[in-house]
Design a protein around this nucleic acid. Structure first.
Lengths: 351, 351
DNA sequence: GTGAAAGCGCTAACAA
DNA sequence: TTGTTAGCGCTTTCAC
C-alpha cells in the first residue's frame, strides 16, 4: 500500500467548480466570500474529506504554531506535570505541543533543538536542572541565538540563563527558599542531625536545595560541619541504596531531607527494610509533592512545587508581548505540605 | 522582533559557490558528491548555521516521519509509560513523536486525529479503554479510513477495533486473564467476599477486568450473586470516596479488587482513615503496577501490565511490513506481582 | 467576486 | 560532476 495521493485543494476547487484561489479563501476563512460560493466549496471539501496540508501552509507562512518541550523523561511525575502544563496552555492558544525526552543524555538535547529549528517550532522549552559549566553556557547561548534568529523563543525551566544578554527567558522555582523552609521545619521539630540525601554536585536545582539546607542550619546557629550531604543523585533506586548504606554505619542522624520525593520513596523503603520506623526513629521529608507522596508510608511531608504551573507559565511568559519580559527571571513560589513523616527526634522524646 | 528571514539552502549554495541542486545533494547526503565540493558546501552551511526547512522537505516528499500518540493525560503513570514507550521506539527509528492529551474529552480525539492528518503523521496511536458503542465504532472507522487513504496507519491500544475490515491495528493487554489471576489469588487466600471497586460500565478495559473477576468467582464455584462491583470509575479520588462509602455500611467484604492502582491508593487511604488495617482487616489488590505501588502502605499486590512495552509494540507492529499484520489483534501478557496487601480474611484467622 | 500567477524552500528528474 | 527546471500544496498579490 504505497501512500495514495492525498486530496488537495485543487480537487476541492475542481469539484466545487471554482478556482483554487477561491477555495483557499473559504477554507482558510480569512477573506470574505459570498454565501453561495462558500457553501459550495465547503460541501465539496466535506464530500472529499479534505484536510489541508500543514506543511504547505507552513511553507507559505500560515502554519500552525508549535511549542516543543524537552524533559528528561515523561514517566517522572515532576516532568510529566510540567509537560501537562505546557500542553494545556499551548492547546488553549491553539498551538501544537510536541514533547521530547532526553533520557538523561545531554547530547540528545542538541539534536532536539536542531530538530525543532527544522520543524519551525516557535517556542522551545528546556526543562530541568543541569550542571552549569562553560560548556552548558556556550551550548545554550547558541540555542538561544539560533532560535532567536528565526524569530522563535527559548524558555529555560529550572535552569539558569547562560548569560546576561542572551535571548532566553527563564522561569523556575525558588529551590533555596523551599529547602530552607523544610529544613527549618525539621529543625523546629528538634532535629539537629539532618542528612541531605540526593545531592548532584553541579546540578543547579540540587545545589540550590543544598544551599537552602545549609542556610537553614546556619540560621539555627549550627556549625557548617553539621551539614551532611550525600551525593547519590536522584531517583528511587539511588535513594534506597544510599539510605541502606547510611543505615549500616549506625544512624548518626535523626532526620533525612531527600532531594526529591522519589529519593524519599527509596529512603522510606530502606528504613523500613532496616526495621526502623518513620517518623518514630527517623523523620523524612521530600521535595516536589508528587501526587502519590500522600500514599507513601507514612504520608510524606514535602515541598510543594507547582510543576504544572511551571509549564503553563513558561508558555505564558513566552507569549506575552515578546520584548518586555525578555531576560527577566521569573520565579515561582513553593510551600511545604505537612503530613506524617516528621516527628521529634527519639532522643528528645525519651530523655 | 518580527521573525527574521531564515537562512535557506540558496544562501548556502551561494556562499559555497555552487548551485542549490549541488547543495541539496550534499545536505541530504543521498547522492555522491566529490570531496572538495562537499566540504565547501558543508563549511558554508556550518558558517551560516543552516538548518533545513522541515516543511519544505515534507512537501516534496522527503520529510521526517512522525508518530502521534493520544492519551488521556500524561500525568497518569500508566499513560506516561505508554507514551514513553512510543517515544523511545519512535526515536530509535529516527521518527518524531508528538504526544497529545484529551483530558478526557472525547471530542478532542477527533480534533487531534484531524490535526495529525494535516501534519501528515504516518502513524497515530490512540491509547486507553473506551465505551464501545455505535458512535465509537463509526468514529474510529472513519479515522482509520481517512488515515489509510493518506497511507498512514492507525493503532488502537487497549481498545477494540471498530469492525473486521477496518484498516487499524490493535494491541492490548489480556485484561480478563489478569483480572482472573489476581481474583484467584484473593480466592486462594481464603476470601469469599470480594468487591470490585472502579467499574466503568461500557468501558472495554474495565469491563474485561470485571469479566475476569466474575470468571474467577465462577471457577471457584461461587454463585453469580457473590460478585459485587462498584461502578465508581477510575482515579484516586473516586476510589477513596467509594471505599469510604462502602465502609460506612459496615464492611460486608474481606477484600477489595481495585480497578487500577490509583483507585487502590484511594481505597487504602479510606481504609486507613476508617481505622482499619490492610491486610489484617481487609485485603486490597490493584491493577497496572505503577512504579510507586511498592511504596503504598502496605506495598500493593497488583497486576503488572508492561505499559512501556505496549507503547513500543504499538509502533513496532505498525512499522512491521505493513500489510501482513493488518487487522491482527496483538495481545500482551500480564502477571501478578505479590507484595504485602493480601492476607487471609480475619474470620479465618480467628475462627 | 473571482481567477491567474508568483513563490514559500526544497528535491528530483533531466540536461549539459 | 554539476546546473537548470519543474513542481510539492498552499496563500496571496494583482488583474479582471
Amino acid at each position: 500500500m504505497a501512500a495514495k495521493r492525498r486530496v488537495t485543494i485543487r480537487d476541492v476547487a475542481e469539484r466545487a467548480g471554482v478556482s483554487v484561489a477561491t477555495a483557499s479563501r473559504v477554507l482558510s476563512g480569512n477573506y470574505p466570500v459570498p454565501q453561495t460560493t462558500r457553501a459550495r466549496v465547503l460541501r465539496a471539501a466535506q464530500a472529499l474529506d479534505y484536510v489541508a496540508n500543514a506543511h504547505a501552509r507552513a511553507l507559505v507562512g500560515g502554519g500552525r504554531k508549535m511549542v516543543a518541550v524537552l524533559v528528561r523523561q515523561v514517566t517522572s511525575p515532576f516532568y510529566a506535570h510540567v509537560a501537562e502544563g505546557v500542553e494545556a496552555e499551548a492547546a488553549a492558544h491553539g498551538w501544537l505541543c510536541l514533547v521530547g525526552q532526553t533520557g538523561g543524555e545531554p547530547q540528545r538535547e542538541l539534536e532536539f533543538v536542531q530538530l525543532m529549528r527544522e520543524e519551525g517550532a516557535r517556542l522551545v522549552i528546556l526543562v530541568g536542572g543541569v550542571v552549569e559549566d562553560d560548556d552548558y553556557r556556550a551550548r545554550v547561548a547558541q540555542y538561544a541565538q539560533a532560535l532567536d534568529a528565526a524569530g522563535s523563543r527559548l524558555v529555560l525551566c529550572g535552569r539558569p540563563a547562560p548569560g546576561p544578554d542572551i535571548p532566553a527567558l527563564v522561569v523556575e522555582f525558588d529551590n533555596e527558599a523551599g529547602a530552607r523552609a523544610i529544613t527549618s521545619h525539621l529543625l523546629s521539630a528538634g532535629h539537629r542531625k539532618i542528612v541531605f540525601l540526593g545531592g548532584l554536585p553541579g546540578n543547579t536545582a540540587l545545589d540550590a536545595r543544598v544551599a537552602g539546607y545549609r542556610a537553614a542550619l546556619a540560621e539555627h546557629r549550627l556549625p557548617p560541619q553539621a551539614a551532611h550531604v550525600v551525593d547519590c543523585g536522584l531517583g528511587r533506586a539511588n535513594g534506597q541504596r544510599a539510605m541502606a548504606e547510611l543505615l549500616k554505619g549506625g544512624p548518626e542522624f535523626t532526620a533525612v531531607f531527600a532531594g526529591d520525593d522519589m529519593v524519599a520513596a527509596g529512603a522510606l523503603r530502606a528504613i523500613a527494610d532496616a526495621g526502623l520506623r518513620v517518623p518514630d526513629d527517623i523523620s523524612v521529608v521530600g521535595y516536589n509533592d508528587i501526587p502519590l507522596a500522600a500514599d507513601f508510608h507514612p504520608p510524606l511531608t514535602t515541598v510543594r512545587t507547582p510543576a504544572e504551573e511551571l509549564g503553563r507559565e513558561a508558555v505564558r511568559i513566552a507569549l506575552r508581548s515578546a520584548e518586555d519580559s525578555l531576560s527577566t527571571r521569573h520565579v515561582l513560589g513553593t510551600h511545604i505540605v505537612v503530613r506524617e513523616s516528621v516527628a521529634a527526634p527519639p532522643a528528645e522524646r525519651t530523655p
